[in-house]
């Protein structure tokens, strides 16, 4: 405890250098960076490619966006769930391989899949909260288990021939399907964060010991955040099915790195308590548009991993600089 105590709490604000004020700007608006980047790249994309095709592009964008949103839910609450991608695949296999053949492929499938997603998320949350396993390793293990189960359930890809799901890749009535799969969870989330639950969630992500001592039920809230992640992952599974009109066990780990990169870019600090789902979407958009632009400018896809890796490195470093506590004397 060697921090300087100033007598007056509201001393005259010293001149803040530009770099510092930019840092504060981005700290208060964690999604700003990715949003700006998205807008710029979107403009370039549309300018260079007149037939941008927003509906199809959105459909292709939905799985990575939802994977990032699902991962973000647990991360904001101070946990992490690396099995989101496997959960999405599980939902997809359940829908295509089991519910549809059993005649449950109609709208009845939606509540079933969401409940299953919530259960999977809850299980992951319990591993971290009740068994107190390090969330990284615990969720890696569950990703492994789930990937194995997916492989058992669908050793070869299963094709979906028709159904409402496929509409989500194009249009439902006049609304692009992907706007529904991304928009509905996003809207519900923005409602949630304004409730007591949202305030509790950000508090446990920011400092769980404080929240605990103030009377917040940290375990319950954290498990709930995993459960929400599970539900969003189920929606992601539906969007993925719509995009590829099939279920394929090999996608069990396809979105792990993409989701982490997206949330890091979107201003969601990996240790929790900062950022929001909008940032996750913006981060995912950056990734998606980078991929697009490589194609657009005829850059070979072999650059993809290099660019992703560099982007992620850049995102975590700037994220950490932005989130760093204000420098105080003698601290």
């Amino acid at each position: 405890m060697s921090t300087v105590l100033r007598r007056t709490s509201n001393s005259v604000a010293p001149k803040v250098p530009l770099a510092e004020s930019m840092r504060l700007f981005f700290r208060l608006r964690p999604a700003a960076f990715a949003t700006i980047l998205t807008v710029v790249m979107l403009a370039i994309n549309i300018a260079v490619q007149p037939h941008f095709g927003p509906v199809q592009q959105l459909a292709a964008f939905a799985p990575i966006a939802l994977a990032a949103m699902a991962t973000a839910a647990a991360v904001i609450g101070g946990g992490i769930d690396l099995s989101i991608s496997a959960q999405m695949t599980f939902a997809s296999i359940l829908l295509v391989g089991y519910l549809t053949p059993a005649g449950l492929g109609g709208y009845i499938a939606i509540p079933i899949l969401l409940v299953v997603g919530a259960v999977l998320g809850t299980l992951n949350g319990l591993l971290a909260v009740v068994l107190r396993l390090p969330p990284i390793v615990a969720s890696l293990a569950s990703m492994f288990i789930l990937a194995g189960i997916n492989l058992r359930l669908a050793p070869t890809p299963v094709i979906l021939f028709d159904g409402w799901v496929l509409n989500l890749a194009s249009q439902v009535w006049f609304i692009p399907g992907a706007l529904l799969t991304i928009g509905v969870p996003l809207a519900l989330w923005s409602f949630f964060v304004r409730t007591a639950f949202g305030r509790n969630l950000y508090a446990i992500g920011g400092n769980d010991a404080t929240a605990f001592s103030a009377g917040v039920n940290v375990g319950l809230i954290r498990v709930a955040s995993y459960a929400i992640g599970g539900v969003i992952a189920a929606v992601g599974g539906i969007a993925l099915t719509a995009l590829v009109s099939s279920a394929d066990a090999s996608t069990s780990s396809s979105y792990v790195i993409g989701a982490i990169t997206a949330i890091a870019l979107g201003g969601i600090v990996i240790t929790g308590g900062r950022g929001g789902l909008l940032g996750a979407v913006a981060g995912a958009a950056v990734i998606f548009l980078v991929q697009n632009m490589l194609t657009l400018f005829n850059v070979s896809q072999v650059w993809l991993n290099l660019v992703f890796g560099a982007l992620l490195l850049f995102a975590v470093i700037t994220g950490s600089i932005i989130a760093a506590p204000r420098k105080e004397n003698n601290s």
């Binding site: 950000y202 920011g206 308590g273 506590p325």
Partner: peptide
């Protein structure tokens, strides 16, 4: 909780 507002901190829990 440093990342939250004064109001949220005062009513935490």
């Amino acid at each position: 909780v440093g990342s939250r507002t004064v109001l949220d901190n005062l009513w935490l829990g």
